[in-house]
Amino acid sequence: MKVRLKVWRQPGPNAAGGFETYDTPELNPNMSFLEMLDVVNDELTRRGNAPIAFAHDCREGICGTCGLTVNGRPHGPGQGTATCQLYMRNFEDGATITIEPFRARPFPVLQDLIVDRAAFDRIMQKGGFVSVRTGAPQDANALPVAKPAAELAMDAAQCIGCGACVAACKNASAMLFVSAKVSHLGLLPQGQPERYRRVAAMVRAMDGEGFGNCTVTGSCEAVCPKNINLAFIARLNRDYAVALLKGE
């Protein structure tokens, strides 16, 4: 199969960007989307052109590094999959595929399809941790965790911080990401001492980065490669309201 790519090219953070069109060589339909870009880049390099810059790492959907907006949808048409888990068989032979970087003011484009997601790291530095005395490993099961809380915490902990929620949201809101991080720690006993300080600090950091606000459209949940549930945002709101009353 062959496809035509309409790709956002931008040489640097402050350079003007625009779309370029490329026709791919013959592709195996079972190639992943990123392998297809590798093949296109080989061809570009052979002809002496700059390859398309895109971020990728594990290529098995667990690292959160890859992230392309494919035909206007972050991570493409799949459900619960990252861009690296998208295969060319999901597209028609001869289709035109538009590839853009994640779009949000707090995610500036570094080059072509690579965006700087350090805003997420700065939010994490404000509360995405538990403060514990280090020492010898604790005995297993020394801290009892109820099964429902453990399940819910694990659901939230699946977030890989890829930023697709921000990219999909019409408001470029990071609330699904922040709610997952806040809930993951806030549901476990280790996270309790800093629970309300954490939510207040992380929301303040999120606002400071210039993300938009949640309008409960559900776009984030729909594109999330880890299927993080929208109800975590309600949990974030609830914890934030309690934090307000506690004066955190």
Binding site: K6, F19, T69, G72, T98, E100, R103, A104, R105, P106, K170, N171, A172, S173, G210, F211, G212, N213, T215
Partner: peptide
């Protein structure tokens, strides 16, 4: 604030 958070929209 929401409009300011996405200065450039996706193609189309």
């Amino acid at each position: 604030e929401n409009r300011a958070a996405r200065p450039l929209d996706y193609d189309g």
